[in-house]
């Protein structure tokens, strides 16, 4: 009690605050440094080592990177995966923008219900989503049935399972909520009177959309696209479950180095390449996602 009432006393409380402060600093900087930065650095180092007869050889060399660049089957998987992720991103940004825009125009209970309906799949287990989607992709699956019903196909196609198309469909569907939500939030943040001001100055609805809505929603759209690309490019669960042997992706290549192939240094080198691509996309998105006008 006495200590509480004499807060102004110099020396003692300050010293205690000093220790606390030090502890605080140590936690705040120490834990991210040890558990995020250090592992990434370790793993960067691993990429320069090699493996011989099941033992890790700690000699610095670029051999893993040369091995990757020199092997066409690796580089083909790499570029194939980049294009796959790019296609997933484009599909999802287009679809996502359409859905987000429509939802942002709605009002009241319907809007609330539909947005909640988007958050449910967002928080749903990722592998469960993949599993469920796989269920509709087979030759006797719902997708084939629908396409035959609509007269687009005359007989069931095996085009939708155990190949890259299956991976594309699965990733697009599984990642779509991650794309829609940031775009929707960006659209919701545009005050109605900007749109009114635009119309007042003579802009047609289409001009208002193109010159006000679209640029103002761009930061959120970039973030949505980034989430989609980064998650797609590094994913190995969806290709593993719906890709079969023909749907081989870079993520599976990395994963196999830590499983069956058991070549950790090579796997680490492959992931470093993935890390560089992802960081590049994240930084680029960070730039695009915070244009000058958004900063104070």
């Amino acid at each position: 009690m006495a200590a509480l009432s004499t807060t102004g006393r110099p020396g003692h409380p300050d010293r205690r605050r000093g220790w606390l402060h030090l502890f605080w600093l140590a936690t705040v900087y120490g834990i991210p440094a040890i558990l995020i930065v250090l592992p990434l650095l370790t793993f960067l180092m691993f990429g320069f080592w090699s493996v011989e007869e099941g033992r890790i050889l700690r000699d610095f060399s670029f051999d893993n990177y040369f091995a990757f660049a020199g092997n066409e089957s690796y580089t083909r998987v790499f570029t194939g995966t980049l294009f796959l992720a790019l296609r997933v991103m484009i599909i999802n940004v287009l679809l996502g923008f359409a859905v987000a825009y429509f939802l942002s125009r709605l009002e009241g209970r319907l809007k609330y219900a539909l947005v909640l309906g988007l958050i449910v799949p967002l928080l749903m287990s990722y592998i469960i989503k993949i599993y469920a989607i796989r269920g509709i992709l087979g030759t006797s699956g719902l997708l084939n049935k629908l396409l035959i019903f609509l007269g687009i196909l005359s007989q069931p196609s095996d085009l939708f399972l155990f190949n890259l198309t299956a991976v594309l469909i699965t990733l697009s569907l599984a990642l779509l909520p991650f794309t829609i939500l940031p775009i929707f939030i960006a659209l919701e943040k545009i005050p109605a009177n900007y749109l009114e001001a635009s119309a007042d100055l003579g802009a047609t609805p289409w001009q208002t959309f193109r010159r006000v809505t679209l640029p103002m929603a761009l930061p959120g759209t970039v973030v949505g696209g980034m989430f989609c690309f980064v998650l797609a490019v590094g994913d190995f669960l969806a290709p593993e479950l719906v890709g079969g042997t023909r749907g081989f992706t870079y993520g599976r290549l990395v994963f196999s180095q830590f499983g069956m192939a058991f070549n950790w240094p090579f796997g680490a080198a492959l992931s470093v390449i993935l890390l560089i691509v992802s960081l590049g996309v994240i930084v680029a998105a960070g730039r695009l996602g915070s244009p000058k006008w958004l900063r104070q």
């Binding site: 005050p191 009177n193 900007y194 009114e196 001001a197 635009s198 119309a199 007042d200 100055l201 003579g202 802009a203 047609t204 609805p205 001009q207 006000v212 640029p215 103002m216 244009p291 006008w293 958004l294």
Partner: peptide, 21 residues
């Protein structure tokens, strides 16, 4: 008449200046 056809212009209370321009 739609807003954008009217020969009037408005000065809004909080100005509604486009932040990205």
């Amino acid at each position: 008449m739609p807003i954008y056809r009217r020969p009037f212009n408005t000065v809004f209370q909080d100005y509604a200046l486009f932040p990205h321009m």
